[in-house]
């Protein structure tokens, strides 16, 4: 068993899309049961970095990784590593809420059904539990059989979180989950993530620095030097330090809003 308190360890990771180098020399340790945020200006590769952690970049033609991405001691890019198993352990919530055009119930039950759970009572329990964990149950308990698309944006995003929770993942990746939501819905998601971090390792990409400062325990700041250069980590550390006394001048300029 691999026990050093780190869930993910990225070592000298480079990411290419075809000939284009998107990320260079990414070194990052992501602690268990903490919220780690990834910040940086648009186009710095922060979403791409997040998508390395559940191999969603596999969907991009010509995407390729060098270096290593280790989850609990195992390299997830190893030839024999099960991508399906990885994605069960590492769930993802996207920028735009993307519930399936199915009922609320079927959205949450989607993952458990994929993994072969058919028993009605078990599924009912999972759906209720997941919706409760995502702080959505009270609002939807009387309309589980109606379309998920009728929910508000904030409810849809919490439904997507419930859908991920339903397969009991170990890590939840969130890619700017609040960028399409109003401040109240954003607040609810943030409260929810703070509750969830006792049980899950959470990695969140955000363009909202206040959100990173409020929410996360650790923060990684990515940027690119020039248009066309690969994105790199400028600074990584505990959130407090990054936001109060950053060691790199570029981090300080970014968090004080002087560029980016």
């Amino acid at each position: 068993m691999h026990e050093n308190g780190y869930k993910f360890e990225l070592e000298e990771m480079d990411l290419y899309y075809g000939d284009f180098k998107v990320l260079e020399d990414v070194n990052l340790e992501i602690k268990k049961c903490c919220i780690t945020s990834i910040i940086g200006p648009s186009g710095c590769g922060k979403s791409s970095a997040l998508r390395c952690l559940n191999r969603m970049n596999d969907l991009v033609d010509g995407a390729r990784i060098e270096g290593s991405v280790v989850l609990d001691g195992e390299d997830i890019y190893d030839r024999n590593y099960s991508v399906v198993g990885l994605r069960k352990r590492v769930g993802m919530v996207f920028q735009k809420p993307n519930p399936f055009p199915k009922t609320i119930y079927d959205n949450v039950a989607f993952g458990p059904r994929l993994y072969g759970i058919r028993d009605r009572e078990t599924l009912d329990g999972i759906v209720e539990e997941s919706l409760k964990s995502a702080a959505l149950f009270e609002e939807v308990k009387d309309k589980l059989r109606t379309s998920a698309l009728a929910l508000s944006g904030g409810q849809q995003q919490r439904l997507c979180i419930a859908r991920v929770l339903a397969v009991q993942p170990e890590v939840i990746l969130l890619d700017e989950p609040c960028s399409a939501l109003d401040p109240i819905a954003t607040q609810r998601i943030e409260d929810l993530l703070s509750d969830l971090k006792t049980r899950y390792t959470i990695v969140i990409v955000t363009h909202n620095m206040q959100q990173a400062a409020r929410l996360s325990d650790y923060t990684a700041f990515f940027m690119i030097e020039e248009q066309g250069d690969p994105g790199k980590i400028v600074e990584y550390g505990d959130t407090n330090t990054i936001f109060t006394k950053p060691t790199d001048e570029r981090t300080e300029r970014y968090i004080t809003g002087r560029f980016g």
Partner: peptide, 17 residues
Amino acid sequence: PPELKEASVAMGATRWQ
């Protein structure tokens, strides 16, 4: 919408699923 496919794949569904 491409988000549908992403959501499904990210849940661990295979291409056929």
